[in-house]
């Protein structure tokens, strides 16, 4: 069980962001996924996205991340320009040939984080896994490792696509802990999920209207 660590996230983000979605719509091919999405998040607020498979949760997250072009409606982040965003999707971006410790060290360097990345192993519940190859990790352990960048490079906007998938109770507790610290520091968070998210202050169910 991970001992709670202090200071894995800043006490307050120096650049808190707002998130305002106005009249947002998205279609993939000829299919309209959602339309008329309007939502405002202030620092410290979290939005939970619910909805059936294929209702557009991932597409909405990818629009906010800037991967998908916004054709109808607007997304704005208040003053934070360019928005500093973390996106964790189904594809975790981990490299199978690397060891866990190497992955953390590279993550720290790639995200410009000065921290001693190896210290994160206990927090992530991966103690003594530093020498293991990423390809040998279980799905849940990979998820935990992918979360490392949230702590390594503090960013005020987190976009998590079904973060609870494949995680055990302790892993889900880890997400809750990270999300709690993030929100307490004035971050904002948008997460899609099929299970209720305790830390959410707002909810949005996609595909309910149509």
């Amino acid at each position: 069980m991970a001992k709670p660590q202090k200071n894995f996230l800043p006490n307050a983000y120096p650049d808190p962001a707002h998130l305002r979605l106005e009249g947002l719509a998205c279609s993939r091919g000829a299919r309209q996924l959602f339309e008329g999405i309007s939502q405002t998040l202030a620092p410290g607020e979290a939005l939970a996205l619910y909805g059936a498979n294929g209702s557009g949760k991932t597409s909405l997250l990818r629009q906010i991340a800037g991967f998908l072009p916004v054709e109808v409606g607007t997304i704005s982040f208040g003053d934070t320009r360019p928005p500093r965003v973390h996106f964790i999707g189904h594809a975790d971006g981990l490299k199978n040939p690397l060891r866990v410790g190497e992955t953390l060290a590279f993550d720290a360097a790639l995200w410009g984080a000065p921290k001693n990345a190896i210290d994160l192993l206990p927090l992530l519940g991966l103690d003594n896994r530093g020498w293991q190859t990423v390809g040998d990790l279980s799905a849940g352990q990979r998820r935990r490792l992918a979360l490392a960048k949230l702590c390594l490079a503090p960013r005020p906007v987190w976009l998590l696509d079904e973060p609870m998938t494949a995680l055990d109770a302790a892993g889900q507790h880890l997400i809750d802990t990270l999300a709690g610290a993030h929100l307490a520091a004035g971050g904002i968070l948008v997460a899609s999920s099929h299970v209720p998210l305790g830390f959410a202050t707002q909810t949005l169910t996609l595909g309910a209207a149509s």
């Binding site: 991967f67 594809a91 490299k95």
Partner: peptide, 16 residues
């Protein structure tokens, strides 16, 4: 190709 398949390409868009 590998970055596209494992999701690293998404992360490359967000790097500092």
């Amino acid at each position: 190709q590998a970055d596209y398949e494992d999701g690293s390409l998404d992360q490359m868009m967000l790097m500092p």
